[in-house]
Nucleic acid binder design. Sequence first.
DNA 1: TAAAAAAGTAACTAGTTAGTGCGTTAAGTG
DNA 2: CACTTAACGCACTAACTAGTTACTTTTTTA
Lengths: 237, 237
Amino acid sequence: MSQSGLVATADGQAVMGEVMDSTPASATPAKKPRIRDAEATKARILDAAKKEFAKNGLGGARVDVIAEKARANKRMIYHYFESKEGLFQTVLENAYVDIRTAELKLNLDHLEPREALERLVRFTWEYYQKNPEFITLVNSENLHRAKHLKKSEVIKVYSRKFVSMVTTILERGVSTGVFRQGIDPVQLNITIAAIGYYYLTNRFTGSIVFERDLMAKEALEERLRFNIDTILRLVSV
Amino acid sequence: MSQSGLVATADGQAVMGEVMDSTPASATPAKKPRIRDAEATKARILDAAKKEFAKNGLGGARVDVIAEKARANKRMIYHYFESKEGLFQTVLENAYVDIRTAELKLNLDHLEPREALERLVRFTWEYYQKNPEFITLVNSENLHRAKHLKKSEVIKVYSRKFVSMVTTILERGVSTGVFRQGIDPVQLNITIAAIGYYYLTNRFTGSIVFERDLMAKEALEERLRFNIDTILRLVSV
DNA sequence: TAAAAAAGTAACTAGTTAGTGCGTTAAGTG
DNA sequence: CACTTAACGCACTAACTAGTTACTTTTTTA
């Protein structure tokens, strides 16, 4: 039994990526493979939960399904996250931290302002595509009037950094003379997100309404070009 | 449906105990107040369902709640709409028909192209605000990969008319020389919807992330101005 | 007016669902 | 090695949920 347990844990880590290095700093030279690994179990639950919540929303998600997909006992979910909503809150918080972290890593400050803005539009577009759960989680959270995000304190810190990033780009563009004055960074931020987010979140109804496969490769490329164009025209003098 | 039927049912609910006009055998050919009114019951169910689906999504909505709010027996829902999903499909279809109908009534063809576009942006913005259920229903439908809308035939007819409306505006603008050439009407349509839709559907998380009440009167007015500006800059030569 | 058709109701079912009580077993510690 | 702590699992429940059965009442029709 102990061996099968070990295999199971190894599998779990393989699925979610490299987690093995997150072993607590123990001075034990011989690293015994842990059959019981709280961090790994937690991580598997969070990963399974993210997918299930994204697929079915908070209301439609099933705790039993999450436990099964995480190859964890349902009891563990309540042990680590207290409740279904507690689990959702953690998943959502992580999702926000992830995107904000990735954005800040872009390091746009040394780029020419127009180039910086284009990169941001491109990044946002690609991030939404690579992480479709983000969009669905945010939608679900808004359906519940952001009651979970309201409780989060970390979010604010990350958000401020993000807003100030765009503010800086705008200011630099104005002083260089390539951007016009008086643009509200928040409105710009919202617009950059909107033109990508809406297209992707409504891709199913959109493909029907416009009788066009909005997710075809060329369609996606065309949309990105259009979005970059939209933003640059918006800020240009 | 008979007009009198609707009125009579509106207040003539058996529950309310309205007995005034319960003429039994008198051969009054005119208008007998109907205590039973299929159309009115259907309408009440659809109205209650729209609200419940919009509030909780398809998965979170409760059939019993819909029945109660509609002051109808749950059995009637299954009698008229077959299933919860059948009810959702009808609600969604109606929502689309409603917005498309309102859009076509705008009669933008006789207006100066720039003015026509501005009016469309304004209308879209105001419609979303006055009919918040529309946004939530569409979100819910996209969570389910548009499986309900796919079955609808009416939608296509309305959608085509809508797209061609914007196409005409663009063409007129190009021939007048106020709009640049080569703009894809579908992309423009999506963008007009996006910049309003995203702002409103994500108003709860947005107000937290940007630490600003996005639904304050001035904030809404500012956003509308920004959106009109965005679209006009996008199409201008 | 009698009978058929349609509208409406109450009570029920079979299957879920989030959440728990309590026991078991592995891992760290002195 | 004994002992404490933390990870984990089984089996249960109380409430809920979409959908139904079998019946009554009203309206229409021949």
